[in-house]
Simulated scan of single mutants.
Amino acid sequence: MGNEYRIALAGNPNTGKSTLFNALTGLRQHTGNWAGKTVSMAQGSVPFKDKVFQLVDLPGTYSLFSNSKDEEVARNYIVFEKPDVTLVVLDATSLERNLNLALQVLEMTKNVVICINLIDEAEKQGIKINEKLLMNRLGVPVIKISARNKIGFPLLLDTIDRIITGAIECHPAQMKYSDEIEEQIRKIEPKVREMVGDRISSRWVSLRLLDGDEALLNELNKRFVPEGVR
């Protein structure tokens, strides 16, 4: 349907990602296995204004490399299935540890919302988070929420809607690496771009290939290389 949009939920385990999913979708959800995978996923719908957001609860992971099946599945969904918006759920009480995953997602895709969950718990511990500063640094919307108490939901849903309509443009901050790594990226990125075009981030693919990510290389071969030339 023309008014349905896919929203992926990514996050470390125990950040309240599934609590957010359950609170937003209520009874409008179901669980099933990924095609060809043993990893299960939950999907649910959220009607908002004239649209329906189809939420996909990705496996909880600490990174999006290829260290486990969960990581691979979550990463492949964001990169290859291209959800309209990706929500990255962070724990407000462990923000520094959680930001690693957020920075990885920002390298992979453009339309990202950072959801800082458990904000009520953080306030009890005297933790103050300047979401506007984070927004300026990261280049994407940052929303403080409490999934358990449904705090921040109207702003979160409105932000997703405004990204979809183009009222908000995301400009994810680009991580800078050492001069040596940046030089290697410059060398191989043009060849990567010839293969993937603008369908996925050629810079991100270049980084992963420099890191020796064989699982990603196999996935790229399956998706982008014609059978006759493999």
Rank of each mutant, 00 (worst) to 15 (best):
E4C: 13
Y5K: 05
L9F: 15
G11L: 13
N12V: 06
N12C: 06
T15F: 02
A23P: 02
G26C: 14
L27G: 04
R28G: 02
R28N: 15
Q29N: 15
S40C: 09
S45V: 11
K51E: 14
V52K: 14
L55E: 00
V56L: 13
P59R: 05
Y62Q: 12
S63I: 00
S63T: 01
L64G: 12
E72H: 00
V73P: 01
A74W: 13
Y77P: 06
V85N: 00
V89W: 10
A92Y: 04
A102C: 12
K110N: 11
V113Q: 07
V113N: 05
I114F: 11
I116N: 02
E121D: 05
A122Q: 01
N130V: 10
I143K: 03
A147Y: 01
I151P: 04
P154S: 10
L155T: 12
D158L: 03
I163E: 12
G166K: 02
A167L: 15
H171G: 06
Q174I: 10
K176Y: 02
Y177H: 04
Y177N: 13
S178V: 01
S178P: 00
D179N: 00
E182T: 13
E189Y: 03
P190R: 15
K191H: 10
K191S: 11
R193D: 10
E194H: 01
I200L: 11
L207A: 11
L207T: 08
E214W: 10
L217V: 04
N218M: 08
L220R: 11
N221E: 13
P226I: 06
E227D: 14
